[in-house]
Write a protein that binds this DNA or RNA. Sequence first.
DNA 1: ATTTATCTTGCAAATTCTTCCAAAATCTTC
DNA 2: GAAGATTTTGGAAGAATTTGCAAGATAAAT
Lengths: 263, 263
Amino acid sequence: MTAEERKHRIEAYLQGVEFASLEELSQHVGVSTSTVRRDLTVLEAAGSLRRTHGGARVLTPKSDEFAFSARDSHQFSEKEAIGRACAELIGSNQSVILDAGTTVYHVARHLEEKAPQIVTNSLPVANLFASANKVEVILAGGVIYPRLGVLVGPMTVEAFLKMRADVAIMSAGGITLEGITNSHALLIDIQRAMLKAAQKIVFCLDHSKFGRQSVSPLCGLDMVDAIVTDSLAPAELVAGLRERGVEVILAPAPVNPAPVAAH
Amino acid sequence: MTAEERKHRIEAYLQGVEFASLEELSQHVGVSTSTVRRDLTVLEAAGSLRRTHGGARVLTPKSDEFAFSARDSHQFSEKEAIGRACAELIGSNQSVILDAGTTVYHVARHLEEKAPQIVTNSLPVANLFASANKVEVILAGGVIYPRLGVLVGPMTVEAFLKMRADVAIMSAGGITLEGITNSHALLIDIQRAMLKAAQKIVFCLDHSKFGRQSVSPLCGLDMVDAIVTDSLAPAELVAGLRERGVEVILAPAPVNPAPVAAH
DNA sequence: ATTTATCTTGCAAATTCTTCCAAAATCTTC
DNA sequence: GAAGATTTTGGAAGAATTTGCAAGATAAAT
């Protein structure tokens, strides 16, 4: 294995786990801790990660659409606007499949008045409605994937394959004119099952997802009925999507900034 | 585990429980309270939580009732003692079914070190482990029953009927020599499925359940392998249970708030 | 006012980081 | 191909950081 390849593997591994100790990395790539140290120094200078005492950390864990923290501040206001706009697409008493993912979580926050029937595999979404009596929430079973708070595995896939719903509101890692991709291979099967289960497919993607491509392809644009994004989405790509028959909804920019926690 | 990772886990754990004591946090991440103190100071400066006397609290309480309802319930200390005693019955790498119910929730709090495989239909239990990597948690699917944070319905029953586990740790509404009863009729089917799925059946019942009868009969004493209760359980009934071959474990009374004679 | 619990501070032990050096691997030149 | 130069790798010693403990200070409880 070349040094380049090794650095690449360190990067990739770190993307998956967010944190890793020196020992862990050195075992994973099969070199001494000294070499890993040197690699980390180079990679940090290149800006792809951040060293910490005892290991290293990814630079922008927040850009992970499926990160567990439901109230992450990363593009909070944009996601909130998207959530509001997307919730308006839902009619009363419709059955809605909600994907896991922070943007979709914000949609959920605005769904309570619609009193729909909700199906999800996201623990944060389930918690959100757990005390609300207006909404009936069905949680798919499965194994809890710790970092993300998502239920995964064959049980989850099976649950969605048996389901039928009016709308599916989905997250993803990236969108281009070639289609929609996602970074978490574990979720792809589940998302495909969701797509099959719902009549209408809506993707909620903030502008940072536009033009990005993640590792695993999820579906083509022909499957997508609508995309809800914020007003900072690149105009050319929005136009391109509309040309291909996808309805694109631009959520209006939020008036006031996100409430920053001041102590 | 790196320091960075540890801080992240503290944050995540706190998101789940809203408030946690120093002791609790230090056990969860496996370092001394001194180190947790230092971490909390850093995290507070970073604005992600708020320190309090004796622990720390999240900034934006989302009043997630589940993680919390188990906490401020009455007979907290008895349940905590039962939880600790019951957790000791579980061996490493065993598969455990956890019923919904506050007493069983306290068992879950002490299970993390055992690193078992956990199957449950309780959202609070799922949330408890959502950020812990040591434990594999399988959540049964189903409809969320709002007030209790439990998954119910045919999906849940079916999930447990397909399952096999070493131990089932159960809650109930009452116990007499005639058997065990429960007040939530909705849960009876699910509990019966749990009983079928597990080889060993353990009931966790604080002393207030002894001699009580709820509306729906759940099972006879012959199905029960062990009962964990606190030291205030009525002696005659305990003796009666033992005569019938049920192992009864009396959790030692909690150490704390015994009124110290200060003259 | 006393007692208890919790917090801060200082310090020694342990861990991790940097820097340097020799061995191994790779590249250059013939 | 082979010999020498260059780069890379793995390890070791000292510097820096982090951790856990203990004693005094502070805050809550009774």
